[in-house]
Every structure is written in structure tokens, then in C-alpha cells.
């Protein structure tokens, strides 16, 4: 489902003497449907960079990233938008939403944009919010005023609202209490078991052991190693 070949990444800082900073080279990764792969490596090793490249948020310098049939590296913005809508989900650590939109709608949005009816979309959103222990009285409020933990859980609910065939998870269980952590792990297991290809960053070692089929150390993709 996810196939990365020969991927490299450089940053060119035009305003700092056009310094070219290579950050990744010859990265390879392949994730099959129903497989969960953890990215490991020390902080700054390039885990997030790789995730962002898979999502199309960072541009690759060379190589390919196939999600299904689409190569993110050469895809047009429109193709990437469609892919993000229908195929590729991304749960980041931080919630970024327009102020004033009710939580229920924030969570249901990925379903609404893919054509699910409002009623079904809201029902799904509400069941996720309930599972993640967001009190019902908050559902009609904007999450911008919620606590950090609540925002994170709203973000997770939103990430799991639509059944993406491929899923990117960036520290989904960080700083959750035991009960919510368990719920999130279940959600990830459900996604994996329905056949989603999952790439994740988990600092939570126990979670990694429970969920992941493989671990890939991105340190191997450092340019100096690859050279």
C-alpha cells in the first residue's frame, strides 16, 4: 500500500547563503495492507520528516513514494488532495482547526467531504467522541477552548472518523491516561485489522510492541550513512 524507494530530501536555505542541507538519502520502506510499521531513531533522525514527505507536506528531492497507484513525489496538488481525502489519513499531535466550528463537526468533517450524509457522519463522530471520553456537553463547542488532552483526543477521533486505507500516526498515545491510551490502541488495532497500512511514530514502547509488525530505524536513511 505504501512503497518508498530511493527517497532523498534536502533543504535549501536561500536566505542563508543558499546552504544546502541534505537530511535524507536512499530511504526505502514498504508497508502492506494490514501491516503496522513503527519508525524509530533518535530525535532529529528524520522520523517526522519522512512522515511529512509521505503526506506530501514536504517535497522530496528524488525517489518515489507510492500510495497505492499514486506517486506523491510527482503527483499534482489536486491528486494529493484527493489522496488525502480518500486514501491517506494523518493524525498529528496537534489539532489545527478553524475557530468556532463545533467539535462534532470537526470530527465528522473527513466523512462529510467524502460524501457521507450528515446524519451518519455525526453518528460516527459521536461514537468516537464517546469512546475517547469527550463529555457530550462539549460536542457542540469548538475544541479551541479545550484542554490539551481533550484537543488531542478530538484530533484522534477526527483521524479515525474515515476508514483510510493508509494511515500515518505521529505519537498518537503521547500523554494520554491509561484508559484513553487503551482506547486509542484499540482504534489503531481495528484500523490495522480492517486492512489499513499504518506507519507510526511511537515513543510508547509497549504500544509499539503491541501494534507493530516491524520497526524501521530511520537513522539508516541519514545521508552520511547512505553515502
Amino acid at each position: 500500500m505504501i512503497r518508498i524507494e530511493n527517497l532523498s530530501k534536502t533543504f535549501t536555505l536561500h536566505n542563508q547563503g543558499s546552504a544546502v542541507i541534505p537530511v535524507m538519502a536512499k530511504a526505502h520502506l514498504s508497508v502492506a495492507p494490514g501491516e503496522c510499521v513503527a519508525l524509530t531513531g533518535s530525535s532529529g533522525a528524520g522520523k517526522s520528516t519522512l512522515m511529512r514527505m509521505i503526506y506530501g507536506n514536504y517535497l522530496a528531492a528524488a525517489g518515489s513514494i507510492h500510495i497505492g497507484e499514486t506517486d506523491i513525489v510527482t503527483a499534482t496538488p489536486r491528486e494529493i488532495l484527493r489522496l488525502r481525502r480518500h486514501t491517506l489519513g494523518y493524525v498529528s499531535q496537534f489539532l489545527r482547526v478553524v475557530p468556532r466550528v463545533p467539535t462534532r463537526e470537526v470530527v465528522a468533517e473527513p466523512l462529510l467531504v467524502t460524501g457521507t450524509g450528515r446524519q451518519d457522519a455525526f453518528a460516527r463522530a459521536e461514537s468516537l467522541l464517546a469512546r475517547l471520553n469527550i463529555p457530550e456537553r462539549l460536542w457542540s463547542l469548538s475544541p479551541t477552548t479545550f484542554s490539551g488532552g481533550e484537543q488531542q483526543r478530538v484530533n484522534i477521533a477526527r483521524g479515525f472518523a474515515y476508514d483510510y486505507p493508509a494511515l500515518l500516526l505521529d505519537e498518537p498515545t503521547a500523554s494520554l491516561d491509561a484508559q484513553n491510551r487503551e482506547t486509542v490502541l484499540r482504534l489503531i488495532e481495528e484500523a490495522r485489522d480492517r486492512g489499513a497500512a499504518i506507519v507510526g511514530i511511537f515513543h510508547d514502547e509497549a504500544a509499539r510492541e503491541r501494534l507493530c509488525d516491524r520497526e524501521v530505524d530511520v537513522t539508516a536513511f541519514r545521508p552520511e550513512r547512505a553515502a
Binding site: 535549501t12 536561500h14 536566505n15 511529512r52 506530501g56 514536504y58 517535497l59
Partner: peptide
């Protein structure tokens, strides 16, 4: 040109980098 989040988070042109920073 590009996806909004890509251009803002990984700007390629010097001017865009300046604008974003």
C-alpha cells in the same frame, strides 16, 4: 505553487522562505 501546507512548511523558493520566516 503547490499544496498550501507544503508551500508554507517546505517552501522551495528563496522569496517564499523569506515570506514564511
Amino acid at each position: 505553487t503547490g499544496l498550501t501546507d507544503q508551500v508554507l512548511d517546505d517552501p522551495q523558493h528563496g522569496y517564499t522562505q523569506l515570506l514564511v520566516s
